[in-house]
Design a protein around this nucleic acid. Structure first.
Lengths: 183, 183
DNA sequence: GCTTGCTATGCAACGAGTTGCATAGCAGGA
DNA sequence: TCCTGCTATGCAACTCGTTGCATAGCAAGC
């Protein structure tokens, strides 16, 4: 479990409210750690009770008040302790791979439907890659960037870009394979 | 949710007991869908109650009896229905990426520990790639394989191979980046 | 005037996944 | 002889993740 730690990293990069965190998880952090706003609020409440984060009430005009969270010393040392623990093996779940192997037990019409679905899926990954590349040009224009935070964020983004390129190449392989089956 | 469907695909490829399924999930299927034996037994029980699979008692000498499961017509049509439904977006969880961004908030000693950990992690992925390549030579020696099942299993395995190669290249990038931080 | 959508937080219920444990016979090695 | 490990199935408790819903004010468009 590491949602706590993903939140700590995000709050160290920049303090913010539960709502702001949820939006970051939709964009930046969500590339490698997904979470909904309910999960985030629940975990923030527990972290506040444990003294890992502190909240500051911010009154706003024209919209509801928000509570901006910052990392407390206890949270920071909890993060450092976790950083130095061994990385757990990933729990992989690739629904599409199950469907591809399942296609052997469907007919040609079913496989044609799968081809269309893979094409749609491929398009979403192409959009993701384009978004990453745009973000890279915007956020990391200087190849000799100075501070550690930016350098590390950049290498994680390069991982996302490499992943998307690999997926696109593999999906082309999948499409070619599915098409030769029913030529 | 698709553990049911992963089990259906595995049982269509070859009927087997809960225990055998658990071992397949450790090896072949586990490449893209992990599950423990408890999950598998629980879901098998539900699937049997729903008429998706049927069990056959097999008495064995010298070891406990086992129940071998086969896919029933209702299970097969449930699978086909699922195959033709849209693919859900993947829920990504890359703990290592969180740690890398977190390394900005640790000191040089912490980052040195992370380098060692990434090297260890890299070694496990190198082993995985070697295992995949050995399996590929063993199970798919003929490039012009005949039956649909084998062709589809092969393209999924190629996906695993491409993934491992991508990860290894990215981990080299990560190691180089971490090392330049504290040169 | 009505609907839609955004900011902002949260509860309740359920389903999925994890961890620890239990049983039970047999094989193999220290 | 004892301990470890494999086959084979399963319960119980717990945590995590998902889904639906609720509140509440304001802005923008039809």
């Amino acid at each position: 479990m590491a949602l706590e730690h993903a939140i700590l990293v995000s709050l160290l990069e920049r303090p913010g409210s539960g709502y702001e965190l949820a939006r970051r998880f939709e964009r930046s952090i969500g590339r490698f750690w997904t979470a909904t706003h309910q999960q985030i609020y629940r975990v923030l409440k527990r972290m506040e009770a444990d003294g890992w984060v502190t909240a500051e009430e911010i009154g706003q005009e024209g919209r509801p008040d928000k509570r901006s969270f910052s990392v407390a010393p206890a949270g920071r040392s909890a993060l450092v302790g976790w950083l130095r623990a061994p990385v757990q093996p990933e729990a992989v779940r690739h629904e599409l791979a199950v469907k591809i192997r399942g296609a052997a037990f469907d007919d040609a019409a079913g496989r044609a439907a799968l081809v269309a679905e893979v094409e749609r899926y491929r398009a979403t990954h192409e959009e993701t890659l384009a978004r990453y590349l745009t973000g890279e040009r915007r956020d990391f224009p200087d190849p000799a960037a100075s501070d550690a935070g930016a350098v590390l964020q950049h290498v994680v983004l390069r991982g996302g870009i490499a992943y998307e390129r690999m997926v696109l190449a593999w999906l082309d392989d999948v499409l070619a394979t599915l098409r030769t089956l029913d030529h």
